[in-house]
Amino acid sequence: MTPFTLSEPQRHLEAQIRWQPVELAFWLATLLPFVFAPNYLVLASQIAITALFALSLDLILGYAGIVSLGHAAYFGFGSYTAGLIAKWGWGEPLTGLAAAAVAAGVLGYATSFIIARFRHLALIMITLGLGLLLAEAANSAGWLTGGADGLQGVRMWKLFGAFQFDLYGTTAYTYSLTILFLAFLLARRLINSPFGLALRGIRENAVRMPAIGAPSPAHIRKIYTIAAVMAGVAGGLLAQTTETVSLETLGFARSADVLVILILGGAGRLYGGLVGAIIYMVARDQFSGINPQYWYFWIGTLLIAVVLFLPNGVLGGLTRLMRLVRSAA
């Protein structure tokens, strides 16, 4: 009996599933701030939250081709859910986060029926419109959301009854990073599954996939709901670690920012959102520290430079560089 051998495509897929050394190095590096930059942990925690949000957008944009300008709807919905539960007297973080996930998931599932029917510009504008409608609704429901002043009275209990959310952000970063890592494991598994492959097929050719037995709309609804859950968790984390929720969590600017972050890092690469979040937020922090009035100029220049010199985002550029190095060696 001949031993079972892998065919070429299967080998390619296997290679993708295996953990690369550079991935391990990346995740180990996320622990460095604890040691080398303990005064930057608050920023680090917000980067981790933004990275999670960008990762959730990557699932739909990078893997299913859905460009959304209203993704903050789920982020904000999760944020308000987590914030309200804490405000109403249940400040336990993990259950609050679970509630945020469920709430955003339900909203995501409900809207996914609309999303799955449209493509291109109409899809972008419908996501934008739905996002803006939700933001307006939150503004109108001032009795619930606190309106423009933001939600007041969010008080979190200690994490596991032991770790207070402190001024230095140690707990916040540990908590956010752990959740980000878990979500990343889930996303990684998901996109390397047959379901993930089918999604990529839809992204490349939405008409052909049903013909080979992969129902496009059902798949799109599923991944959209998962992405909404993840965005809701990110929003919940922000509400819990900052103990504030504002209308701005639902706003257009947040949707646009996360899109920029993802494209900057490189869409469709899982790590794109993570790398994008690190670069964008660190750059913003540094530029706005040096030049609080005109930092937009520098961040704009950065974006233009990335597009001109690294057309597939920073990660795309890195991949190309690695290939060059390898072929030279």
């Binding site: 608050v42 920023l43 917000q46 952000g169 900052t242 103990e243 504030t244 701005e248 706005s288 520290g289």
Partner: peptide, 17 residues
């Protein structure tokens, strides 16, 4: 430090930092 508009999460972070 710049909050870039209404952004309590950023304002809080900046205050902490």
């Amino acid at each position: 430090r710049d909050t870039g508009g209404i952004a309590p999460d950023i304002a809080k972070r900046l205050a902490q930092e």
